[in-house]
Design a protein around this nucleic acid. Structure first.
Lengths: 150, 150
DNA sequence: TGTGGATACTTGCATCTGCAAGTGTCGGAT
DNA sequence: ATCCGACACTTGCAGATGCAAGTATCCACA
């Protein structure tokens, strides 16, 4: 049996849990009340907007938004119902479904982006120095591997 | 409308999301398979073990484990069913319910603690330097406020 | 002493989410 | 040409979780 966590280890671990909990809760609430979007839904729209042709296969999209394939299927169902996303087929492989952002989806995303950006700055990055942000970024990337810049 | 997030801001934010996702997923899976405990259940047992008399009111416990009161009620229901926790009353206030760790609960917790500790070290703190941990801890505490040491 | 608002918890309900299984498709090996 | 394992996605089902409402109790104040 190993020794207990050091004070520093404990603070870092607790900090990660609390920061994530508080931030996601606040940002999700802001997006919901102001734009009727969950944080997950916003993330889907954003990833699509960044993709070539505003379009990604379900599998690629699922990995980027940290959702299981089934979870993504149902989230995209909702977005399709609201007309923000459309499902397309590709010719060379009948298995894949491409999720594509509609123009209405882009419109909604533009509105929500402002809210989300303000929220991240107000609750997170704006409270830290540039050096702190760099430290946090590199430390957390160490344990997960780096993520695509965009 | 504000400017986009800087590269550093984005990396820190993405890092937080990914690190939390990966870590909670791994640690939760380890606890489940080895001890039939969810991460939340483990956290409840741990908080109780640290409390005087191994006992806390539902409300105090809920704030410490980052769960809503209703969520905690149902989680404690399960632990009571398994005999790991017991519900007590206090004399001076008939509204409060004290959750108290049983001896069986302490036994299970001792077993799970080793798994959890190894997991945190293997996936998180063990991959960072002492300086990185201090930076992460102080940065994240800045945005949530510090948490009780124990 | 009686009343109304706060407090502590629980329950009803809706939502989110993942795993496992199901469906249809692809492609390499025979 | 056919078969079989891999793959992409969807659906069935169960568990987790929060909000709002419900219940019981407390307490300050009239």
């Amino acid at each position: 049996m190993e020794a207990k966590l050091s004070e520093t280890e404990l603070r870092a671990w607790q900090g990660l849990l609390h920061a994530h909990h508080d931030l996601t809760r606040k940002l999700d609430a802001e997006l919901r009340t102001e734009h009727r979007l969950s944080f997950g839904a916003y993330d889907v729209l954003l990833r699509l907007a960044r993709a070539p042709g505003h379009s990604l296969s379900m599998t690629e999209l699922a990995t980027r938004v940290m959702l299981s394939p089934s979870g993504l299927t149902r989230l995209v169902d909702q977005l399709v119902d609201r007309g923000l996303v459309q499902r397309d087929r590709v010719e060379h492989d009948a298995r894949v479904v491409m999720a594509r952002l509609t123009s209405e989806g882009r419109r909604v995303l533009r509105g929500a982006a402002g809210t989300h950006l303000r929220g991240i700055r107000a609750h997170f990055t704006g409270r830290l120095t540039e050096a702190q942000l760099r430290n946090v970024a590199s430390a957390l990337e160490t344990i997960t591997g780096p993520h695509e810049p965009h």
